[in-house]
Amino acid sequence: MEKIIQGKAYVLGKNIDTDQIIPAEHLVYSLSNPEEVKLYGKYALSGVPPEQGGLPEGNVPFIEEGHFDSKYTIIIAGQNFGCGSSREHAPFALKVAGIKAIIAESYARIFYRNSVDGGFVIPYETSEHLNQMINTGDELKIDVALNTIENLTRKVTYTLNPLGDVFSIVEAGGIFAYARQENLMAQS
C-alpha cells in the first residue's frame, strides 16, 4: 500500500451512482482480457451528465477523447458515492482509469465493500464538504498514516476520517490478501 497518494483532483457532486460510474451497456467486456479491460477505463464516469463532471465549472472530461485513462488521480465527491447497483465494475473502472483514492462524504455500502475487498481504490470519508473547497485540477497529497489530505495548489490541509475496521483489509490489499495473512482461508 502506498503511504502517500499524490495527483490531480476530479470533483463531482453527490449521489454519483454506478450507472454514472460505468453505464450498464459497458458491463459486457471481460475483466481479465487486457485489451477489453482498457475499455473500462475509457468509459469510466461516462454516465455523468457533462455539466456535472469536473466541478465547479463542469464540462471537464474525465477521460480525454481517444484516451483510455485519466489525468486525475483522486476523486472528490459529496454524499452517497457509488449508490445503485452492486457492480464491482464500478470501482474497477475507476482503478483502470487511474484513480487511487476517493474522498466522499459517504458511500453506498456495496461500492464501499467492493472498493476495500477488491483492493481497487481507497474510499476515504470526510465530514467536510470538500467538493466545495477543492477545484478540479488542484494538486492533492494524501498522507495515509496521518489521515490527512493537503491541497498543494491552495496550501490547505484537511483531516480525513480514519478507515477504522477496514484499514487492515485496505493495508493488506484486499480481502484475499487479508484472509491469507490472517489464515482465514485455511479452512476452505
Binding site: 475483466l31 452492486s86 457492480r87 464491482e88 456495496i110 465493500r113 467492493n114 475487498d117 477488491g118 475496521d165 484486499g174 480481502i175 484475499f176 484472509a179 482465514l184 482461508m185 479452512q187 476452505s188
Partner: peptide, 19 residues
C-alpha cells in the same frame, strides 16, 4: 448484495464478514 470479489470469497470459503 455484494460485489464479485466478496462472492468469489464465499465461493471458496462459505463465509463473509459483514458489519
Amino acid at each position: 448484495g455484494i460485489g464479485n470479489t466478496d462472492a468469489a470469497f464465499i465461493l471458496g470459503t462459505g463465509k463473509l464478514w459483514e458489519k
